[in-house]
Design a protein around this nucleic acid. Structure first.
Lengths: 251, 251
DNA sequence: GTTCTTGCGTGAACGCCGTAAACAAGCAAC
DNA sequence: GTTGCTTGTTTACGGCGTTCACGCAAGAAC
């Protein structure tokens, strides 16, 4: 596996032994085909047999790569979280690093755009947790999700650091809520030094609102209003920006 | 079974011919069993064969009652919307008619409670629209959903009538958004006389926030924060009430 | 009361599916 | 070469949605 058994493996090749490389390749091919089926027919349209058939294998062969159909979906989940995070990063990177406002808006719009362009994928990531797709706590999928979240946590963190939004006076926060918010901050590594409860509360509120509007649109629960909800989304984004002390600007 | 066979159709019996009654009964039994399977194993755990087996029938027999598995799920959807609406109505009815504030809070809490007590059912109603469960526009499921929404529309309507919340100055509403909001008001029969664009906007904003927090909890996307998110929900509800000019009161 | 009709349920069949177990071929190392 | 591990196949089991041809009992018509 590593550097040199005799010393023939000078390793200009990508990485790992030949075995490992080809294994990785087929593993990627499986996920690639499964992704296509996911896109085309939703999560329930992904089947080991169909994937195997498409790549000229038999279904049991896939069990050398994924322990079950659920495992395959979970691996897909991890990849998709990474893909989404990459899309968000790309959207951010297009703007100057100092433009926190623009970057945040751009990042949020990127999530919506990705969700609309990848409905089934979005549903797999953010839809109801079925008996299948159960990202166990330390699993790759769970970690990938955490990394995705980290992107936004970092952005919000900068808002706090820049002292953007005025934390509202909230004396009513119950002890239970405070404890949970603190747990949230700890788990996400949010607001390293200035993690005021109020700030966390504002961030979570915004995240919930954002989740709501995007899910509604992607899951098509407001389709009867209009097929294109961009205007509503932008209006929501404007509100959201105001709450965060961020200067809204049209896309 | 009915009253008298001699000149028989005096109809003290429930309704319809005997045929129709027994048909209705088995139809209900099918849905009842399917509902149990839904509760136990999620939407993907509902199968015609299993339902049939449990009621001592064979699967093809069910096709006399539902055109397909998808149709059965859609019928379930309709029933579940009705059940949820009933739960909301009950929660409302427990309070005096004049107590608009209390009724609204109670109604919203009822939705959350129902969702938590019926996760899979909630997912079927509000989760991603799969290739299965596609409530065609005039379908029973779609109508049931509309009736459920109507409950809340009525409540918000009363808030407007009572002049509760001050519509924020929003000169930025784009023409597209205005058109869509008007379409929304028309389709839901919202705000008969005083349907100001701003009011509709406020209502939709609140609905989106509510949808977001409940979905997050029911779909278990904030489970890492805590297993019991009641405190967070109540905090969100407090904010929401403030925006609507509603007096928050603890449950 | 006999006949006719209609609707209900079954049995068999087709083609999917996930998954397990036994087995054969290929590659790696000694 | 021999040994052992990795890969993939074959075969098999049970479950699934759905279709079709068929019996059969209950209601309608006479």
């Amino acid at each position: 596996m590593t550097g040199d058994p005799a010393f023939p493996q000078v390793e200009n090749a990508p990485s790992g032994s030949r075995r490992e490389r080809v294994r990785k390749a087929t593993s990627e091919e499986i996920k690639e085909i499964a992704r296509r089926h996911l896109t085309a027919h939703g999560a329930s349209g992904v089947s080991l047999r169909a994937v195997a058939r498409e790549m000229g294998m038999t279904a049991p062969g896939l069990y050398r790569y994924f322990g079950s159909l659920g495992d395959l979906l979970e691996a897909l989940q991890a990849d998709l979280f990474a893909e989404l995070a990459a899309a968000v990063d790309a959207a951010e990177a297009a703007l100057p690093a100092a433009d926190t406002d623009g970057r945040l808006l751009s990042a949020l719009r990127a999530v919506r755009a990705w969700g609309l362009a990848n409905r089934a994928e979005f549903a797999l990531l953010f839809g109801p947790a079925t008996t299948q797709t159960f990202p166990e706590d330390g699993s790759p999928a769970s970690e990938a999700g955490r990394r995705f979240a980290a992107t936004f946590v970092a952005l919000f963190d900068r808002l706090i650091a820049e002292g953007r939004f005025t934390v509202p006076e909230e004396p009513e926060a119950s002890p239970t809520l405070c404890a949970q918010l603190e747990a949230f901050a700890r788990l996400t590594g949010f607001g390293g030094d200035r993690a005021s409860i109020g700030a966390i509360r504002v961030m979570l509120r915004c995240w919930v609102r954002f989740y709501g509007i995007v899910c509604m649109e992607v899951f098509q629960h407001l389709a009867f209003v209009s097929d294109d909800m961009e205007a509503l989304f932008e209006a929501e984004l404007r509100d959201l920006a105001r709450d965060l002390g961020v200067a809204y600007q049209a896309p």
